[in-house]
C-alpha cells in the first residue's frame, strides 16, 4: 500500500529525514517509535504533504504510484488520513458541518452524490456510537474548547467517517488519561480492517498495549535504525532508546 524509498526531507533547509525506507501492506499495523526530535512526526507530515516540509530526494509510493506531486487534499481524497498530534481549533465552524464538508468532498471525488445534513446526521450518529463519543461535540465549533482527550477522539471520529485506506496516527496517545487512551484505542481497533493499514507514531509503548502492531520501527536522527515485531516495543519500554542507537552507531 505504502512504499517509502530512501526519503530525504527538510524544513527551513534543515534536513530532518535522512533516508527512510518503509513498506506497509494492507492489513498491517506499523508502529514508528523513537526519541523526541528523531523525525517521527516529520515523517507523518511529509507523507500527507504538509507544505512546511520539502522532499529533497527519494520517493513515496501509494497504491503503486508516486504521490510527491500531489497536493495534500489529493492525497487525502486518495485515502491517506492523518490524526493530528495537535488538532487545531477552528472557531465558528460547526463540527458537524466540517465533518459533512470532508465527507462530501470524498463522495464527490468518488463520483457519488453529496449527503444532505439529515442523511449525514444518520451516518454521524452511527459513527459517534462506534467511537463512544458524546453527541454534544458535533454541535460545537471544531475542536474549540475541547479537552486534549476530546480533540483526539474527534480525530478518530473523522477517521471513522472518512474510512481511509491508510491512517497515520501522530502521537494520538499523548496527553490522554488511561480511560481516554482505552476509548481511543477501542475506536482504532474497530476501524482496522484487512484492506486497510495503519501507522502509529508514538513515543511510548503504552498505546501498543491496546493496539497490537505487526511491526515496530525505531527512528533516530532521521533514519530507521531498527525494525522488529511487537516485542521490540516492550524491550524499548524496558531499556529505553539509547541501546538501539548505540548498537546502530557501533555497526556504522
Amino acid at each position: 500500500m505504502l512504499e517509502i524509498r530512501d526519503l530525504h526531507a527538510c524544513r527551513d533547509e534543515k534536513e530532518i529525514l535522512k533516508g527512510i525506507n518503509l513498506s506497509v501492506k494492507s492489513g498491517e499495523i506499523h508502529a514508528i517509535m523513537g526519541p523526541n526530535g528523531s523525525g517521527k512526526s516529520t515523517l507523518a507530515k511529509v507523507v500527507v504533504g504538509h507544505p512546511a516540509y520539502t522532499v529533497t530526494s527519494g520517493d513515496i509510493l501509494y497504491q503503486g504510484k508516486s504521490i510527491l506531486e500531489e497536493n495534500p487534499e489529493q492525497r487525502a481524497l486518495d485515502g491517506i488520513f492523518m490524526a493530528f498530534q495537535y488538532p487545531v481549533e477552528i472557531p465558528g465552524v460547526n463540527n458537524a458541518n466540517f465533518l459533512r464538508l470532508a465527507y462530501n468532498a470524498k463522495r464527490t471525488f468518488q463520483g457519488q452524490e453529496e449527503l444532505d445534513p439529515l442523511e449525514f446526521d444518520d451516518l454521524l450518529q452511527e459513527k459517534l456510537k462506534l467511537v463512544e463519543m458524546d453527541p454534544s461535540f458535533i454541535n460545537r465549533s471544531v475542536n474549540e474548547g475541547f479537552s486534549g482527550g476530546e480533540k483526539k477522539k474527534n480525530e478518530i471520529l473523522q477517521m471513522a467517517i472518512l474510512e481511509p485506506q491508510l491512517s497515520i496516527l501522530d502521537e494520538t496517545d499523548s496527553g490522554l488519561d488511561i480511560d481516554a487512551l482505552r476509548e481511543v484505542a477501542n475506536g482504532v481497533n474497530k476501524l482496522m480492517q484487512p484492506d486497510r493499514a495503519m501507522i502509529l507514531v508514538t513515543h511510548y509503548q503504552r498505546l501498543l498495549n491496546y493496539v497490537q502492531p505487526d511491526f515496530v520501527h525505531v527512528l533516530s536522527a532521521g533514519r530507521i535504525v531498527k525494525s522488529g515485531g511487537k516485542d521490540l516495543a516492550l524491550e524499548l519500554e524496558d531499556r529505553g532508546y539509547d541501546w538501539v542507537i548505540d548498537q546502530q552507531t557501533a555497526e556504522v
Binding site: A76, F81, V88, I90, L101
Partner: peptide
C-alpha cells in the same frame, strides 16, 4: 493560520 488550512486540506477540502 496555515495550520487551520492544512487541517481542512488533510481532510480533502480545498
Amino acid at each position: 493560520s496555515e495550520d487551520q488550512l492544512f487541517y481542512f486540506r488533510q481532510r480533502g477540502i480545498e
